Simulated assay, not measured.
Amino acid sequence: MSFSSLFESGESARNKSHFAMLVTLAYSSGLKPEETTQLLRFKQVLDISDSDYEVILKNPQGYPVTPPNTSDERIQWLHDLFKIVFADNVMDEPEHKLLRKYATALGYTDADAEYLVERSIEIFNGHLNLEDYRHLLNKNR
């Protein structure tokens, strides 16, 4: 197996892991049409095949969290998680708990995860672009 094949499979595994996190969040409060639409967008962005999409939808817990390597990627993933939560403009308690759990799984300390989730809830309206999101998260810190 070539080095490039190893890299591609690592990236693919991270994308599947991330997509499974998004699916789990969407399922946590009952899958809504807006969340399904958002999942289809993420499927395309993350280059998830149709067959992998079906498998992940059936068993998102079958994919361990494989956190990204950089701080920028972690912020991107956190932003994506909030996009799926706010796809229906509502955040319920199961989603809130999963967001804290996933923020920690992405590599943030418990205190940082709590801060990032609470701060994100304050500033996130479902339509922020990534650069605005990054700026607002780091403001006053």
Rank of each mutant, 00 (worst) to 15 (best):
D92I: 11
E11M: 14
A13V: 07
L128I: 01
N15I: 00
S4Y: 05
S120T: 15
S71R: 03
N89W: 02
R134T: 05
S49Q: 04
A111C: 02
Y115E: 11
S51L: 04
L137N: 03
S12R: 14
V90H: 10
H135C: 12
S9M: 03
F86R: 03
D72G: 01
L128A: 02
F3N: 07
V23L: 05
Y27V: 01
A20P: 06
S5I: 00
M91H: 02
L98N: 10
G107Y: 03
E122R: 14
A87S: 11
L57N: 00
K32F: 00
F19P: 03
H79V: 04
K83S: 14
D80G: 11
E35T: 02
L39W: 07
S2V: 00
Y63Q: 07
K101M: 15
I48F: 05
L116R: 09
N15E: 06
L98C: 06
L22A: 13
I84M: 11
L25W: 12
K32H: 07
V55Q: 05
G10H: 01
D80L: 03
T70M: 03
E118G: 05
T109Y: 08
I84H: 06
P68I: 06
L106V: 13
S9G: 01
P94T: 04
Y27D: 01
H79W: 13
P68M: 13
H18R: 13
T24S: 12
K83G: 12
Q38D: 04
D88A: 01
Q44N: 12
F19E: 06
